[in-house]
């Protein structure tokens, strides 16, 4: 098992003929992902360089291929449009890689797509090692196993996974939830899924400064996942107070958003917080040994 994605998930790529879309489609196919086609308006009827069918609309694509999972590589102005087109066509799972999507587009999407699981935007995607990879992650650092991973960062995720794999700790599913203020899937959403997944025996959470997603995750863990070995990491502990944090933003979150708040929330939930990514495998092994 795994969460969200397995070897049978049928994936289509929005923006499949663009340079990034095309390049990463090739990499996903090489990893074993079941990509069945793609969408580029105006290029319907053509075949990609990988031999996949291209469609003008999402509706045509899923009707012809039976695809269930969307992966978006379109520019920021078109990402909200791509998500809503997929929702209207009946798609209920989407991964949005695009960075720089206007926050108002995501407000509208989040408020009008009940029942749709959106990963991202501004995320590296997700991978269920040995089965399927959707997004831009470098497949070779992953290894099949029992550790679930959730991360707000892209490259830092690869760093952490690389460490886990080298330490012999394979992964069930790794989800890069994205670094934008409004994201489709939060730590808690993923935790709920991991809690139901028999393959996942331990978890790693990679958070960063800003927002209160980590604090909510810590509260969820305390209540529902106290039996599971979990280790956290908070990136940007030496970053100065963010310029992008507005006045009213500071009110809503109060003391939330600082690295101290996140670290103490995890510690209060019994989750050790690694000082550096390289400590994560060791800490996790200690936790796993303690529970046996």
């Amino acid at each position: 098992m795994s969460i969200y994605l397995d070897k049978n998930s049928k994936v289509f790529v929005q923006g499949i003929t663009g340079s990034e879309g095309s390049y990463h489609t090739g990499r996903m196919l090489a990893y074993g992902t079941k990509i069945v086609g793609g969408v580029t308006p105006g290029k319907g009827g053509q075949k990609t360089t990988h031999g996949l069918p291209v469609f003008n609309t999402v509706k045509e694509c899923i009707e012809a291929t039976g695809a269930t999972h969307q992966c978006i590589f379109v520019p920021p102005a078109g990402a909200g449009d791509a998500l809503l087109e997929a929702y209207e066509a009946g798609v209920r799972f989407s991964v949005c890689i695009t960075e720089g999507v206007p926050v108002h587009d995501m407000l509208k999407v989040a408020g009008t797509t009940p029942g749709m699981r959106i990963i991202g935007p501004n995320c590296p995607g997700l991978v269920s090692p040995g089965q399927s990879l959707v997004g831009i992650m470098p497949g070779h650092v992953f290894k099949e196993g029992n550790v679930g991973l959730i991360s707000r960062s892209g490259t830092l995720t690869y760093e952490v996974v690389d460490g886990l794999t080298r330490a012999g700790l394979g992964q069930s599913t790794c989800v890069g939830i994205g670094g934008d203020p409004i994201i489709g899937t939060t730590f808690v959403d993923c935790l709920r899924e991991f809690a139901k997944d028999p393959q996942t025996k331990a978890l790693v959470l990679c958070g960063e400064i800003g927002g209160s997603d980590e604090e909510e995750a810590a509260a969820f863990i305390k209540q529902h996942l106290s039996h599971m070995p979990i280790v956290a990491f908070i990136g940007g502990r030496n970053a100065p107070p963010g310029k992008s944090l507005g006045h009213a933003g500071a009110i809503i979150s109060g003391s939330f958003g600082t690295p101290q708040s996140k670290v103490s929330a995890f510690q209060a939930a019994g989750v050790p917080v690694a000082d550096r990514p390289s400590q994560i495998p060791e800490l996790l092994k200690e936790r796993m040994a303690a529970r046996v």
């Binding site: 990136g235 030496n238 970053a239 990514p277």
Partner: peptide
């Protein structure tokens, strides 16, 4: 570094 998360991690 490439990526904000890794760039913050590099600072750390």
């Amino acid at each position: 570094a490439n990526g904000a998360g890794l760039a913050m991690g590099t600072m750390d």
